[in-house]
Design a binder for these strands. Structure first.
Lengths: 168, 168
DNA sequence: TTCGCTATACTCAAGTCTGACTATTTCGGT
DNA sequence: ACCGAAATAGTCAGACTTGAGTATAGCGAA
């Protein structure tokens, strides 16, 4: 995945709130952000190293008790500036997503129509399952995320509209 | 970007229709598919090499006139089988996209509300511009793509609904 | 107390992706 | 006939991503 800056924005945004060590950042992302951002743990470490190289965060190794060393990251003034720039760009930009499942539809005529119908019916079930998962997320995650969950729910609804159009 | 198979599906699907050389494939993708799939030229060459390694296509160098050598790709029987498998999976699956601009909204309170509003207004203009581009694509691309363009248009409409909700 | 399981904290080799570059041919205009 | 621009056809170093692996600490049960 190329770098459009939203993952740096996320990391800087978290560090702006409070200093954190890598594991803590990853835990937070996995628990609260995974539904709207794709960022694996090892990638986060890589990006933090890059942010450090670019002077946007500082890294300090610390140790609590006998636990292994951990690196605590803190945002720098340059990082704050960069954060604001990324935020402004992100808010003003529209990056159309790519829908991985579009490709199949281009070639649907390579299969018998009845089978295509069955397969798309299965897809519809998967969309419904995803919709339920999003709805339950709304009751678990903090209120800041409600707008984003709504965003996803609106798109899932659109997806269901479209696939029902295809099935009819 | 990890490999979920849709790009292989696309390449095999094109080669299933007719043998092609690399440049020709890339031209076709750039002209007809770029709006719904993200696949750069060098990546296409890389994937074709991989498909060859896996026995799904064969590669034959040919030369027309004095032009530089070109590699002609042909799908193999194993490739046909693989194509069908990928197609079935693709049709039955729902892969929720990630919306890169969601991140900004999480941190919107780091900017004055009035500025956020202005920035989102700009985003709205960008969405509208994208919508127009999609509409004009519908008049240019072959009819096979209409369902996909409709898919995109439905999502763009959803996006506009959502952002207007945020602005109100 | 000791065995195994989970949590803590990363590291790295291998896979994947692409912007920038190379090199030749054809073609329209002057 | 010659020049510059566009088309043809890819290559590759370097950047990005991630699954699998490493290593230690705490903690509950037998």
């Amino acid at each position: 995945m190329p770098d459009h800056g939203e993952r740096q924005l996320l990391l800087l945004g978290l560090l702006r709130h409070q200093e954190m060590h890598g594991y803590q950042i990853n835990e937070f992302i996995d628990e609260q952000m995974a539904f709207c951002v794709d960022l694996k743990r090892s990638t986060a470490y890589y990006l933090l190293e890059r942010l450090r190289h670019e002077g946007y965060v500082t890294e300090e190794t610390e140790r609590t008790g006998n636990r292994p060393e951990r690196r605590v990251y803190r945002i720098t003034p340059a990082g704050e500036t960069h954060f604001q720039a990324l935020l402004r760009t992100n808010l003003a930009t529209y990056t159309p997503p790519t829908y991985a499942n579009d490709i199949g539809l281009i070639f649907h005529h390579h299969l018998p129509p009845a089978e295509v119908r069955t397969l798309l019916e299965t897809r519809r079930q998967n969309i419904l399952a995803h919709q339920e998962k999003l709805k339950s997320l709304a009751t678990v995650l903090p209120a800041d995320h409600l707008a984003i969950i709504r965003h996803h729910l609106i798109h899932v609804a659109a997806e269901l509209d479209w696939i029902e159009e295809q099935l009819s």
